[in-house]
Amino acid sequence: MKNFIKNNRGFIVFLLCFGFFRMAIADWNPIPSGSMRPNLLEGDVVLVNRIAYDFKLPLTDIVVARMADPKRGDIVTFFSPKDGTRLIKRIVALPGDQVEMRDEVLYINGQAAEYSEHKILREALENGENIEALRVTEAIGQNTRRVQWLNDVPARNNFGPTAVPDGNFLMLGDNRDNSADSRYFGFVPRHLLIGQAQRILVSADIKGNWLPRTERFGQGLAFD
């Protein structure tokens, strides 16, 4: 063992540095489901900045330094408060916000979102079924994103009003009728955040022919 370590010191140091970088600085996250469509697609691999909000000791939730506060509209990776599954969703409401949804319309602090640029199209479900979807631009103040609803798919599109507790966030998927998010598992405490998704590194059509989607390589994720 001593000889192995001596003869491979450079490689071992590289592995340790790489492991630290992934666990503490930056990581990547494959997109396995359609919960963030139309903005993130199955087969996208996104770059996650692990120190966007907090610098933590690797493999722990111990915060060494706070870097910045999460903002509405940020796409983040986090551990589900329900079962610890690693998820990726969008922050819709911040600590202290009053949030409500009435018949799919989102309200933040009493202000209703505005919906424009309506587009009807067909979307494929995980079971292979194709159904009609409505895709729109959702805007609250200066914060905008494309979201969609699926026709005749049951989802919790009414809740609240409720206040987001201190140190917690409300997460929603952009594919509102096909997303397990805060409507089902509740608010997400800050210590469960992993990092901010900032860019698509690579992408492949995993639901089709598995060919690379080169037009998505390096694509940034807009934050308005």
Rank of each mutant, 00 (worst) to 15 (best):
K2H: 07
F4M: 14
I5K: 06
K6I: 06
N7D: 10
R9D: 00
F14K: 11
F14S: 15
L16T: 04
L16N: 13
F20G: 08
P30C: 07
P30I: 14
I31T: 13
I31G: 03
P32Q: 03
G34Q: 09
G34E: 10
M36Q: 14
L40D: 08
L41W: 14
E42P: 05
G43V: 06
D44P: 06
D44F: 00
N49S: 05
R50N: 08
R50M: 14
I51D: 05
Y53F: 14
D54W: 01
D54K: 02
K56V: 13
P58I: 01
P58K: 00
L59S: 07
T60D: 10
I62T: 13
R66T: 13
A68M: 02
A68P: 12
D69C: 04
D69F: 07
R72L: 01
R72A: 08
D74C: 06
I75R: 05
I75C: 00
F78M: 01
F78T: 00
T85E: 10
R86L: 07
R90M: 00
R90T: 02
R90Q: 13
I91T: 02
L94A: 12
D97M: 01
V99H: 00
R102H: 01
E104C: 14
V105S: 12
I108L: 06
N109M: 04
G110K: 00
E114M: 12
S116A: 02
S116F: 00
E117W: 12
H118L: 11
I120S: 07
I120W: 10
L121C: 09
L121N: 13
L125P: 01
N127F: 00
G128Q: 05
E129G: 02
N130G: 03
I131L: 11
E132K: 09
L134S: 07
L134N: 14
L134G: 08
R135L: 05
R135W: 12
R135K: 14
V136W: 07
A139W: 05
I140R: 08
T144Y: 08
R146L: 09
V147E: 12
V147G: 01
Q148N: 05
L150E: 12
V153H: 13
R156E: 11
N157T: 15
F159L: 04
T162A: 09
N168C: 14
F169G: 02
F169T: 06
D174W: 00
R176Y: 08
S179D: 03
R183F: 03
Y184T: 11
F185H: 15
G186C: 11
P189H: 13
L193E: 04
R199D: 06
V202I: 11
I206C: 06
G208E: 14
N209R: 10
P212S: 01
T214C: 12
R216N: 14
F217Q: 12
F217T: 11
G220S: 10
A222L: 13
A222C: 07
D224T: 13
